[in-house]
Nucleic acid binder design. Structure first.
Lengths: 214, 214
DNA sequence: TATTGTGAAAGGGTTCACAGCG
DNA sequence: CGCTGTGAACCCTTTCACAATA
């Protein structure tokens, strides 16, 4: 039995489809075609059908897809629609912004712990939470059954903090620090690197006529 | 003459190489091999050489690459190492975090204008800047020669704000709002979508054994 | 000799086109 | 008849392997 596989781009598209389906459902639409889903997402109907076919067949030939059902199936596939416990490492401005971000909680992501190494920040209240010493990360995050860790520390602290997250049993990390984290095989990592995005824009500005492909 | 092309992933790797070269240069290293660059970046030496070969040949066979020269050539290629004027649309917490982010200015990205639609925010001081009415975006950003726009508004305001950026002559936009922006061909767009990254992590947590590729 | 630069091969994601089915 | 589901074709990216060369 070979491990099933999905590309990062397909996964991102599924997230988009889910968003569109939510909008369609809110608008009371009963069914939707792969063509409609495609044009909203800037892709093709064949792509939509292929993406969905990774997980089964959800449509009716000649009719399209039942909106509420596909929405809920997709939510199940992506693993949203349940609660996930999140810990923030780094009580700086970016951490605060993420913590305050409402779409966050609305989608089931609950920040249950915040950590920092700065004694002036430790002990501060963040709404119902208290900023904890990052030294307590491994034990405290485990106690609180944290499943997802978000790294919003400076680059030089990122690896250490990520290691503590792994010690806490966390197996999914979203990293905003501009550092290349080395993690065990079984831990999922996504990087959000502002510098890289900006440099890609600079490249495009500097090289008019070049095509920056997918 | 067909338009040259580079993949998004190659571009991201170039940013990484640049970072490593800066570190090597700071450490006083004279030369570096594609192999060393590769292992730092989690890729292969052949990949490094292919990536660089898009833009010329910078190495010496048998020796490797001269660190300072390759660093400066790469910086030139990516278009960093000069000043870029940036405007922020959205004076919320995320905007503030980006504005305060130091690595930002250090890399030549200067926030020269901040816009918002909230009357309570308009007129506030942000360091040397004053939050301006978003209605003034098109004219003010043009006056200030803004080249890169960053959208940190709620989703429902994002398209409108992006349109104003285009009116201001901005041709590079970094979008943090969870909205699909429709822009003219000649405008470069990069999306940073927190929900999508988190959902990809949820997927991985929910589907142990699956491989999320690329 | 060590390492680059690069055609050729392999791999994998996207598009095509049509059979299958409601 | 319309639209899905999918094998096959296509295309782009990565990897391989080796000739070129400092």
């Amino acid at each position: 039995m070979t491990a099933p596989r999905i590309s990062d781009s397909a996964l991102r598209r599924l997230s988009h489809y889910l968003r569109f389906l939510e909008a369609f459902e809110a608008a009371g639409r009963e069914t939707v075609s792969s063509e409609e889903l495609a044009e909203r997402g800037g892709t093709t109907s064949a792509q939509v059908r292929k993406d969905l076919s990774h997980f089964g067949s959800f449509g009716k030939r000649g009719l399209g897809y039942p909106v509420p059902e596909l929405r809920s199936r997709l939510a199940g596939i992506l693993g949203v629609g349940r609660r996930w416990n999140v810990a923030l490492a780094g009580a700086g401005k970016l951490g605060a912004a993420l913590h305050a971000y409402d779409g966050f909680r609305r989608r089931g992501f609950h920040v249950v712990a915040v950590f920092d190494s700065d004694p002036r920040k430790i002990g501060r209240r963040w709404g119902p939470l208290t900023v904890e010493d990052v030294a307590r990360l491994a034990t405290s995050a485990r106690e609180k059954a944290v499943e997802i860790g978000i790294v919003v520390t400076p680059a030089d602290a990122a690896q250490e903090v990520a290691d503590a997250m792994v010690d806490a049993g966390i197996t999914a990390i979203l990293n905003f620090a501009p550092a290349k984290l080395v993690l065990p095989e079984n831990v999922s990592l996504r990087d959000v690197n502002l510098a890289i995005e900006l440099e890609a824009l600079c490249f495009a500005l500097t090289h008019e006529g070049w095509i920056v492909g997918r």
